[in-house]
């Protein structure tokens, strides 16, 4: 045990990461708020309920089709607040910059942060920057924290009921594939663009349309498969999803066939999974379809009483299989 080292897999969003969080961070630092493991912590200040979240962005490459590390740092944090039923308000930025980075690159990233902030309706109100020696970080890392005001209460796994519908707002895996296409050693050209986008406006419309939304999650690291597993982890229910209803765009599918990936495990940065009462599902989908970020919205599955703590996939051919949590980042394979 003494020789155990941190592996890249510990950061992949899968089981290793969850174990590390549970057995080290939550064990030592956990409290009644952090143990809920929501995308944002919900805290009381005076008589107000505030959502508070933080995330670090280390994407490589820093510019990718459909976005860059700057816009990603804003959208990611905005989305973590929005899925908790909060109106994102203020964001902090911490930048760690590698000595020797081109000033023009930093300017481009700043311009992108500005545009993303405007689009998301938030203000960057404080920040910090450090420059580290060449090789101590890769070009630039950004941490962003955000706070928002809770306007919709009761989003919680406790409210899930058997029969609830699960909705997604668009195609899966586009962010992961756009980033991978530029990676050394894999490199391919593709029309796939990252789905990175701020979801706060779309989510506001959803929550206005239905008072029976139980829970929302953004399927980032670990993808839809891992997020759905997290939702039913406590063992009260299971999830059943239908392969043919899960939107996978042209380009993403081909990249997955080529590299031996399962799109269900690929990260999205502008997607949200919504658990909503069955009777409101159609209404929510219709509202979503009217928004540019929800045009491909559809019901992909439902909460079930059987198969507790499991995610079952009905294959497009009528078979069935279990979809487990990601165990380590998917690696391109030839076998």
């Amino acid at each position: 045990m003494g020789k155990e080292k941190i592996l890249l897999s510990h950061g992949s969003g899968g089981k290793l990461m969850h174990n590390l969080i549970d057995t080290l961070f939550l064990k030592e630092l956990g409290n009644e708020i952090s143990r809920k493991k929501n995308d944002s912590a919900v805290i009381n200040i005076g008589n107000k309920k505030i959502a508070f979240t933080t995330d670090s962005y280390v994407v490589n490459p820093i510019f990718f089709p459909g976005g860059d590390i700057g816009s990603l740092a804003i959208h990611g944090t905005v989305n973590d607040l929005a899925v908790c039923g909060a109106r994102p308000l203020y964001i902090s930025l911490g930048m760690i910059i590698e000595e020797g980075l081109d000033m023009d690159i930093l300017k481009r990233i700043t311009a992108s942060i500005k545009a993303a902030s405007k689009r998301s309706g938030i203000k960057v109100v404080t920040g910090d920057m450090k420059v580290v020696e060449k090789g101590s970080c890769d070009k630039i890392f950004i941490n962003s924290s955000g706070i928002g005001e809770l306007y919709y209460r009761g989003l919680s796994t406790d409210n899930i009921k058997a029969g609830d519908a699960i909705i997604i707002n668009g195609g899966i895996g586009e962010h992961a594939i756009s980033v991978l296409s530029k990676r050394e050693g894999i490199r391919f050209s593709s029309a796939v663009k990252s789905d990175s986008a701020p979801l706060s406006a779309l989510i506001t419309k959803i929550l206005k349309a239905s008072g029976k939304v139980r829970l929302m999650r953004d399927p980032t690291r670990g993808g839809v498969a891992t997020t759905l597993n997290e939702i039913v982890k406590d063992g009260k229910f299971g999830v059943s999803i239908d392969e043919k209803s899960i939107p996978v765009k042209r380009g993403v599918r081909e990249a997955c066939e080529l590299l031996g990936f399962d799109p269900l495990y690929l990260a999205c940065e502008g997607r949200v999974l919504i658990v909503v009462a069955k009777e409101d599902a159609k209404k929510v989908v219709n509202v979503m379809k009217k928004d540019a970020l929800g045009r491909d919205a559809r019901i992909i599955g439902r909460i079930i009483k059987e198969h507790k703590a499991r995610v079952c996939l009905n294959t497009s051919l009528g078979g069935r299989r279990i979809v487990d949590m990601l165990s380590g980042e998917q690696l391109p394979r030839i076998c």
Partner: peptide, 29 residues
């Protein structure tokens, strides 16, 4: 190496663990 071999355990370690310990391992297609 192909990604396939990256996590395969040997007698005492794996390439993934050796990479974390400083070995230069690159994945190729």
């Amino acid at each position: 190496t192909f990604g396939d071999m990256f996590r395969v355990p040997g007698s005492y370690s794996s390439l993934e663990k050796e990479k974390a310990a400083g070995c230069d391992v690159r994945m190729v297609y």
